[in-house]
Write a protein that binds this DNA or RNA. Structure first.
Length: 594
RNA sequence: GGGGGUGUAGCUCAGUUGGUUAGAGCGAUCGCCUGUCACGCGAUAGGUCGAGGGUUCGAGUCCCUUCACUCCCGCCA
């Protein structure tokens, strides 16, 4: 028998009554009755109630043990009387009477309680992450994460994919996010970059003939954090397949995600077959390329209404003449909502930096009328036309805003979320997946007016490759797709461009000449010239998948050792200063801060 | 880089219109308690009210500056 334990803390049952056992674990909780002491002993597996009374010589020292001390106890399993059974824990029908105990790991006074549902400041949780991780919810989240990853690995293997590792020290790439850089000692003045994703490597794996690749891949991007975005590093289920079309990738991902979400969550999937929404449709109907489809509200363009003579809402009419659009959200049967609801949305929109949201409710007495502060500007005919256009009925309300398309999309998208949450329209018990497809290959930079890759420079343009109009790049669509679940972007992927000449052509539109492409993407562009298979893939974010499954709103709740918002590890004190020798070896000098 | 929120005991928080000695629960320490499972009861210790400056007879409270954490915008092929 192992000297630390004969059983774990979740193993003993009624059938063990009478057994002599050894248990080890943390003191989760003590209940001291003076002459009788209960100790909840906890390990990874569960909790066992241990008990000792004054007759035992160990009583007084055990009584003084600090919570979270690691102890080993020897004792006997005894039955609990029916009134004292604890149904909350698996071992609740028995308890262990302690004969002997030994301290295995002493514990100082705790900076934060472990046994508590209480929420704590992030700072203290991250500094004492090893204590935080002992707490039930997050401990279970991390275990869930492990199980999800292992399940995914297994599924991928079953789907015929093999896992390959790719380098962590690689080269900086000019597109995309800011790189994390690592100075090279052997090559003074030169830097490695940590991969933002193994993008080029996985394509090279396809060129190397491996056909189906996957990896639970660490990715590093030096961008600012958000609740659903760790600073620094995150993990993707990176996958790539040869000789495939877009639909083949979709099929694999739908199988994988459906199986994973069905296995690890009780929430229902809203769609068995994930709907496909084009990028342009998504922006029009949801104002966003990551729509939450649990939300039934749809945005509609009603600009034409403001070009009518019998509409006298002059502020909007004037804006429309100068190129702005008007878009609206209709809410069903909201005529009895209090004025404060409508004004609340308007005020909220103003707080978001928009010029507010106009609104009215469709009413009918003798004729159709618009009730609300701006209702008087609309004729009956114009209201009928509006109802036809939007599907609104008497009793419904309409919220609308006017602005340039980009700003309008932004404000209507958040208004859509805001209104739905005010009206409680979102079913929190479901997952709504969708594909966003047909991304444009390029977009115009709002400030510099330069043409840039809108997503991934390695994507394959759509259509007959011989007929692509490179003179009109903003109209080129790509075989580029995202998968979205409940408004969270889970991943993006593409069918890749495996034709070097086409690649040079596309890069030249984005302002890179041949020699720049050759030097920046040397590995890949070179490889594509030696017989590259058509290929494509995708890379769902593991952290976000686990976040959805664990029903958490913050990615740090599913990350074992996360950094804070300023990309500092408060437990390990990273980043830290390095000594002069290290700097010297790396040929670096630090500019003194002002 | 910008905007919002928060910062008071080891932890979670309360603190009125600016007014005497800044409070509670948990935790810690000590005492009482043989059936609890958030055990109970009593006592004690524990405070640079994030920091600095200002207004005032008087500041946890008002003003300015600044720092930390967090949420959002920018950024994230």
């Amino acid at each position: 028998m192992n000297k630390y334990r004969s059983h774990n803390c979740n193993q003993l049952r009624k059938k063990n009554v009478g057994d002599k056992v050894i248990l080890s674990g943390w003191i989760n909780k003590k209940r001291d009755h003076g002459n009788l002491l209960f100790i909840d002993l906890r390990d990874n597996y569960g909790i066992t109630q241990c008990i000792i009374d004054k007759e035992n010589s160990n009583f007084s020292s055990l009584e003084k043990m600090q919570l979270e001390t690691v102890i080993k106890i020897e004792g006997k399993v005894v039955d609990r009387s029916s009134e004292t059974i604890n149904k909350e824990i698996d071992t609740g029908e028995i308890e262990v009477t302690i004969n002997k105990f030994e301290v295995l790991g002493a514990c100082k006074e705790l900076p934060m309680p472990v046994f508590s549902e209480q929420e704590y400041a992030e700072e203290i949780r991250l500094k004492y992450r090893f204590l935080d991780l002992r707490r039930k919810k997050i401990h279970e989240n991390i275990i869930l994460r492990s199980k999800v990853i292992s399940f995914i690995r297994n599924e991928m293997n079953n789907l015929g994919f093999l896992e390959y590792q790719t380098p962590i020290l690689t080269s900086s790439s000019p597109e995309g996010a800011r790189d994390f850089l690592v100075p090279s000692r052997l090559n003074p003045g030169k830097f490695y970059a940590l991969p933002q994703a193994p993008q080029q490597f996985k394509q090279l794996i396809m060129v190397s003939g491996f056909d189906k690749y996957f990896q639970i891949a660490p990715c590093f991007r030096d961008e600012d954090a958000r609740a659903d975005r760790s600073p620094g590093e995150f993990y993707q289920l990176d996958l790539e397949m040869s000789f495939v079309e877009q639909e083949d990738v979709f099929k694999v991902v739908e199988i994988l995600l459906t199986n994973t979400f069905k296995k690890f969550s009780k929430k229902k999937l809203m769609f068995d077959k994930f709907p496909k929404i084009s990028y342009s449709d998504a922006l029009l109907k949801y104002g966003s390329d990551k729509p939450d489809l649990r939300n039934p509200l749809i945005i509609r363009d009603i600009t034409e209404i403001f070009e009518r003579k019998d509409v006298s809402f002059e502020i909007f009419k004037k804006l429309v003449k100068s190129g702005s659009r008007v878009r609206c959200i209709v809410t069903k049967n909201t005529k009895n909502k209090p004025r404060s609801f409508f004004d609340g949305i308007d005020k909220w929109a103003k707080d978001q930096g928009a010029s507010g949201m106009a609104y009215f409710t469709f009413e009918k007495d003798n004729e159709i009328a618009a009730k609300g502060p701006v209702g008087k500007f609309f004729s009956e005919d114009s209201l009928k036309e509006l109802m036809k256009k939007t599907g609104a009925e008497v009793g419904d309300s309409i919220f609308f805003a006017c602005n340039k398309v980009k700003e309008l999309e932004k404000i209507t998208a958040s208004a859509r979320d805001k209104i739905a949450s005010e009206l409680d329209l979102i079913d929190d018990n479901s997952f709504a997946f969708c594909w966003i497809v047909d991304y444009p290959m390029f977009e115009e930079n709002q400030i510099s007016k330069k043409i840039e890759f809108s997503h991934n420079p390695f994507s394959m343009p759509q259509g007959d490759l011989k007929k692509i109009d490179f003179k009109d790049p903003l109209n080129i669509l790509a075989y580029q797709y995202d998968i979205v679940c409940n408004g969270i972007e889970l991943s993006s992927g593409a069918i890749r461009n495996h034709i070097p000449e086409l690649m040079y052509e596309l890069f030249s539109i984005a302002g890179y000449d041949k020699s720049q492409v050759d030097s920046k993407f040397s590995g890949m562009i070179n490889a594509l010239s030696y017989g590259a298979p058509p290929h494509g893939g995708i890379a769902p974010g593991i952290d976000r998948i686990v976040m959805l499954l664990a029903n958490e709103k913050n990615i740090r709740e599913v990350t074992m050792f996360p950094m804070n918002q300023n990309a500092q590890d408060l437990m390990m004190n990273a980043p830290s200063e390095i000594n002069d020798n290290q700097l010297k070896e790396l040929n670096l000098t630090i500019k003194s801060k002002k």
